[in-house]
Structure formats: structure tokens, C-alpha cells
Amino acid sequence: MAPSNKTLFLKGVKDGLPICVGYISVAFVFGMLCLERGVGVGFGLLISATNVTSAGQFAGLDLILAHASLLELAVTTLVINIRYTLMSLSLSQRVHLNLWQRAIISFCNTDEVFAVAMQADNELNFAYMLGLILTPYLGWSLGTLLGGTVTGLMPLSVRSALGIAIYGMFIAILVPPARRERPVLVTCVLGAALSCLFYYTPGLNRLSSGWTVILCALAGAGFAAWKYPVKEEEEP
């Protein structure tokens, strides 16, 4: 028997919790920056609640403070966030959603939500996806608000420690399948190696983080797809 919508919604909420924990600390920093640089916590919260994207918001804030043109802002946001196109395309093959549900869920398809959704072993229906994005969205907004109001609440040592939480979660997602399946291990090693190459090579490291992720994904996943094509499976 398929699990009920309520069960799937609650599983989504549970799966979203580690994302929420990581988001609070990152959004906290964003809220602090908004306050310190005179944008104000109100606008900070508005940006967080409508964008829900970390790197894009930090870059956007810099541009706003520099009084950049709207075109410059649009292009920068596109370059940093074009990686979501790849993730949404990958997710499009897994979700069981109608048109409107897709339009709603995609609003909060962050790196982390995508990562957790793709490793879930249950059906990715609307109830599960709503549960999954619920606490990350609240954590992202609440973290911004807290960062912009009660800066003293979270000591630097705690913020510094929580900075690794998101990466810890990524590692928890990657390691088990990499242990089981050699193609996944090869993809991971390739992705990480290329990313380091882009980060540490003079010249190459001037490329924005958005493009780096795309190039690493194209090369890593492209190689794995060529070398280890997935088995044809029948549609359930």
C-alpha cells in the first residue's frame, strides 16, 4: 500500500530539518550584513523570503549597495543561479506533480532541497515536497530576521560551527551511494577534483561559482553517463 499523503508530508518535514539547521546560520549572516550595511532587516527579510538562494542573495546585496543597474543585477543573478536549471531538469524526471504543483515547488528548489529530494526513496509527490520545503523556507526567513535583529543571540563560535552543517549534510547524501556504486564514486571524485582545479588555478578561479558548478556537473555527470549508462527501467 502506498503511504498516505500525511505520512509523506511528515517524512518531508523530517527530511527537511537538517537543511533548516544549516540555513539558519547562513541566513543569520545575511541578516547581519543587511543591518550593518544599511539595507535594513525588513528588506533583508523580503529578499530572503522571495529569493531563497544563498550565493545569489549575497552577490545581489553587494550590487545593491554599489547602486548597480537592474540589468547588471539580472545578469549576475542569472550567472550564479543558472545551475538551478540543471537541477530542476534532473528533478523533473523524478517528481509526480501537475503543472501548478511544479510551479509552486520550483520556487524553493534550492541546492539542498534538490539534493535531499533526489536521494529520497519515496514517491516525490506534492505532499512530500511541501513538507520538505517547509522548514528550510522558515529557517531561511527566520535566520535572516534573527541575524538582523538579535545579533548577540548566536555567538560567533556557534555560527562558525554551524557553517559546516550544510556540507556535512551533502557528505551524508554522497557517501552511502558512493560506497555502493562505483559510477557514483567516480562522479563524486571527478566533480570534487574539477571544483578544486577551478578554485586553485590562477585565471580559472576568476570564473563565478555558478559557472564552476555547471562546468563540473557537465563534465562529471557527462563522463559518468558515457562510461556507465544507467539501465533501462520500465516506468512504474
Binding site: R83, L86, M87, L89, S90, Q93, D111, F114, A115, M118, Q119, S160, A161, G163, I164, I166, Y167, F170, I171, I173, L174, P177, A178, P183, V184, T187, C188, V189, L190, G191, A192, L194, S195, C196, Y199, Y200, T212, V213, C216, A217, A219, G220, A221, G222, A224, A225, W226, Y228, P229, V230
Partner: peptide
């Protein structure tokens, strides 16, 4: 090929986003 590619995308994206960024996250 495209389906295989999309199957491997999450792993390539996550590993690229984790290293070396994790080393500078604290």
C-alpha cells in the same frame, strides 16, 4: 544518455559544491 546524465547530476553538483568550499566554511 541524457537520462544517465541527469541521474549523475546530483552527485557531480554536490561534490563540486562541497570541495573545496567545506574547508573555508568555518
Amino acid at each position: 544518455f541524457v537520462r544517465s546524465f541527469l541521474h549523475y547530476v546530483p552527485y557531480a553538483v554536490l561534490s563540486a559544491m562541497t570541495l573545496p568550499a567545506v574547508l573555508y566554511s568555518t
